[in-house]
């Protein structure tokens, strides 16, 4: 067994990997015996990539994201985030995290929700105001500063939560099924906006989803996972151009990648139950 969570140097000498996992395993001890949420995951995520994690429930895609975010501790193997341990990366505020539910604090207005991480990081009021305005503009929520979360639609709430994750300019954005609870029309719209935002900010994005079209449309790299134990069955480098209008989803290129994702999911026996 490897020492848990030790720092791994990036393999390649050019662009250093933002996230690098080697033989990463995580086993939860439950009353029904051990659950292997992640088993021997090897993965490198380069700077500026848009990586989707796709797989059925229990395949460990959310767990992997939470390990990167230092919200779960691996039981074996190693992982580095920006060349540091996840804990150090978290302490240096290396990433922004977007949860499945918007998780906006209901007693704070939209601008104060976005300002929350900035307050905790001790930024000056003027700096806070400036950054809140900038990030709200980035997610097209200018004009909604003084609204409370319940006054916004689900899609707008999720955009506010993305703004909150962007507000402190971390280079890595971790998104855990951010659009899973939204209807398809809103989701299409937000996917388009997210790509636009990614192009503008050049962030590295890790995106958990269980929608094949969403994964293919958004990603430069698709990680297909399967459950029991949670492991990576396929890593697909997308051949789609970075510039992606919504109708690219009807192109044969798109359908070819989607097919390969579906094959990967099937290979992982994820349709068995």
């Amino acid at each position: 067994m490897n020492a848990p969570a030790s720092t791994v140097m990036p393999a390649s000498q050019e662009a250093p990997a933002v996230v690098e996992a080697a033989d990463l395993s995580l086993t939860f001890q439950t009353n029904d015996g051990p659950v292997h949420a992640l088993a021997d995951v090897d993965l490198a995520i380069g700077k500026g990539e848009f990586v989707s994690f796709i797989g059925p429930s229990g395949c460990g895609k959310t767990t992997f994201l939470r390990v990167i975010a230092d919200l779960e501790q691996p039981t074996a193997g190693s992982i580095s985030v920006n060349g540091m341990s996840p804990s150090e990366a978290r302490q240096s505020r290396a990433y922004g995290y977007v949860f499945q539910a918007a998780a906006l604090y209901p007693w704070r207005t939209i601008e104060r929700n976005v300002a929350l991480p900035l307050e905790i990081m001790g930024l000056s009021k003027t700096e806070q105001r400036e950054r809140v305005a900038r990030t709200l503009e980035l997610v097209n929520l200018t004009g909604f500063e003084k609204k409370f979360p319940w006054q916004l639609s689900g899609g707008m709430q999720q955009r506010a939560s993305i703004a909150r994750a962007l507000a402190f300019d971390a280079d890595l954005l971790l998104m855990d099924e951010p659009f899973g609870a939204l209807d398809e029309i809103v989701r299409d719209h937000l996917n388009e906006q997210l790509l636009e935002l990614w192009a503008r900010t050049e962030k590295t994005i890790c995106f958990v989803t269980h929608s094949i079209p969403e994964a293919v449309y958004l990603s430069t790299k698709i990680v297909v996972m399967s459950p029991r134990p949670g492991r990576v069955t396929d890593v697909i480098e997308s051949t789609l151009p970075r510039e992606r209008p919504l109708d690219i989803r009807e192109s044969s290129e798109f359908l070819k990648i989607a097919h390969r994702v579906r094959e990967g999911l099937r290979a992982g026996h994820s349709y068995d139950d």
Binding site: A69, L71, G96, F99, Q100, A101, A103, I120
Partner: peptide, 23 residues
């Protein structure tokens, strides 16, 4: 999720208290 969010910000216990638990 609210508590995890505070954790990702590396928030202190007093921040968690004043900005989350108390309100």
């Amino acid at each position: 999720a609210y508590l995890d969010l505070m954790h990702t910000y590396n928030a202190s216990r007093s921040d968690v208290f004043w900005k989350l638990r108390l309100p």
